[in-house]
Design a binder for these strands. Structure first.
Lengths: 130, 130
DNA sequence: GTGCCTACTTTCTTTTGGAGAGTATAGCGA
DNA sequence: TCGCTATACTCTCCAAAAGAAAGTAGGCAC
């Protein structure tokens, strides 16, 4: 129930604070560097094996790759297929949910591409001003 | 110049690797929890003072707030106005660049709101399966 | 003088991340 | 038979980052 002194129908209205907390939490997990980079690698290259992904995501350690993939699997963003052969073969691909998140991040990607120069200018200016 | 053995006009074509590296780098800085949360707070509430912002961003420490705001200022995302009064008064507001990034992140926000339930289900399933 | 106000700093502790070596297993060549 | 390779982790150790809490500056009301 809303607090009676403030009923708002503003589209930017404060939502249920519990929902807001959950959304903030979800953002906290999903909006990290490695998740975004893995998501993009899988969007761009489709289903991939562990070692391939390690090569596609620049600078990631095996530990973080395992960890992030597990978290993404738990959140339903990627599907993990284990082929019981030797040497081991494990493939990762985006789920529908993962794909939809990838699309959501697309805007950020385009922003980064479009405004790279501006950011670099801003940094140079900031650093010059001391 | 492109390598002659592989000329591609695919819209998802590999861009200049230097650009890609820079974009990845920029994503790494911008796609973090606190930056997103501060960005959203400033989008929603407009110009804010330090202490106000600390209250608006749930769970942030003063240290991280200072640090993240400085980084955002350096990147040209926020503008910092210092009023030389006592006690100190410092106001932060989004720049045009910051606002555009906020809009880019909007998709992720909407995604989180829309798919919160699915993620929770996925987690429950994952945890149940062991 | 004492305390208050705000926007930070500083210090200390805990958590996280990265580098690199180790593990399990079967097939293959010497 | 021995050793080598390949793969997807897993473990250990150390450095870097984040969080908590106390400290700082400096005018002003008391």
């Amino acid at each position: 129930m809303q607090s009676p002194e403030k009923i708002s129908y503003d589209p930017e209205a404060p939502v249920d604070p519990r929902i807001e907390a959950l959304v903030n939490d979800l953002i906290g997990r999903v909006a990290d560097k490695w998740t975004m980079l893995i998501l993009e690698a899988l969007e761009e290259h489709g289903e991939c094996r562990f070692t391939r992904l390690a090569g596609l995501v620049p600078g990631i350690s095996q530990k973080m790759l395992t960890q992030t993939l597990r978290a993404m699997e738990r959140d339903g963003l990627v599907h993990r297929t284990v082929h019981p052969v030797i040497p081991p073969k494990v493939e990762y691909r985006l789920t529908g949910l993962g794909h939809s998140l990838g699309e959501a991040f697309c805007g950020v990607w385009l922003w980064a591409e479009a405004h790279l120069g501006e950011v670099e200018e801003a940094r140079a200016g900031f650093d010059a001003r001391g």
